[in-house]
Design a protein around this nucleic acid. Structure first.
Lengths: 152, 152
DNA sequence: TATTGTTATACTCTATAACTATA
DNA sequence: TATAGTTATAGAGTATAACAATA
């Protein structure tokens, strides 16, 4: 079974197209596992990192932040709870709306993001190293366009 | 980029590399939702389709099938249960091992796969249409290499 | 009436452990 | 002792609905 364990031995001509969704799911899963393990050394999950790192780039309310990273607002509540408990982020009153909270990043959070970004960069470099250099940008580009597709 | 709602307005140079895992997760999620909706008209989930479609390509025991499509053996039990209840697949005794079961596809299953493959092909064509034709094969290729990376 | 954030709840997918019957 | 399949269970991640405070 030298090849049997590698993947489905599809013999139909439709196999390539048929596998797109499956390929994405597998790639996403294995990379997430890898990144989760790498980020654990900073005590963050990929979602923590993504939210915290994004929060640093502007003044986001919780809802705006949720939309920005593609999370449900209820998931965002839990995520912010955890980041706040860790002292990395905090809910600040929004300027013009007493309902809304702006998510601020604390000093400790800023330091943590620097740390986690280094980890992420290292991990992704490892991952992308399996692609020829000239294919990397087009690949990421194609992915981006695939995501932008439906929301346009 | 006046589109704050489109994605994180990252201002760091690391944004591209930083988003790889996130991009894959988003792409996988949105495509899975789309494919799930499309396949619902055939009464199948993407996982059902993938397992059934793969089972047709050879003589797989449950465990072999699980490895082939990247599912846990316990998930495979449930999947086969459902496919069997729907009359699309069946557990047959394996030739040389009384512990193992070969997953066979029934006549109804074969017809169903033809139907679901058409749906999948149509859906993927739609999805890939957002990429220039000459980028599609390299993109799928890159994805495949990314997955093959760790198991090698 | 609509929206922000919250809580509670449920559902899917996946992972872990223990069991059986074979090998 | 190890393996194929099963069962039960637990854990993520996400989604839905209802609520309070505010707009």
């Amino acid at each position: 079974m030298a090849t049997a364990a590698r993947g489905p031995a599809t013999d139909s001509p439709a196999s390539l197209a048929e596998n797109l969704c499956w390929l994405l799911a597998r790639a996403s899963q294995s990379l997430t596992i890898e990144l989760t393990a790498a980020l654990a050394e900073a005590g963050l999950s990929p979602r923590h990192h993504c939210v915290l790192s994004t929060a640093m780039t502007g003044e986001y309310t919780q809802t705006a932040l949720a939309q920005a990273v593609g999370l449900d607002k209820t998931t965002m509540v839990v995520t912010i709870d955890e980041l706040e408990a860790a002292g990395l982020a905090e809910r600040r009153p929004a300027a013009g709306d007493r309902r809304a909270r702006v998510i601020g990043v604390t000093k400790a959070g800023v330091k943590k993001v620097a740390e986690s970004r280094a980890i992420v960069a290292r991990t992704q470099a490892q991952i992308l190293s399996s692609l020829p250099a000239h294919e990397r940008a087009p690949f990421v580009d194609a992915l981006t366009r695939l995501i932008g597709r439906e929301s346009v």
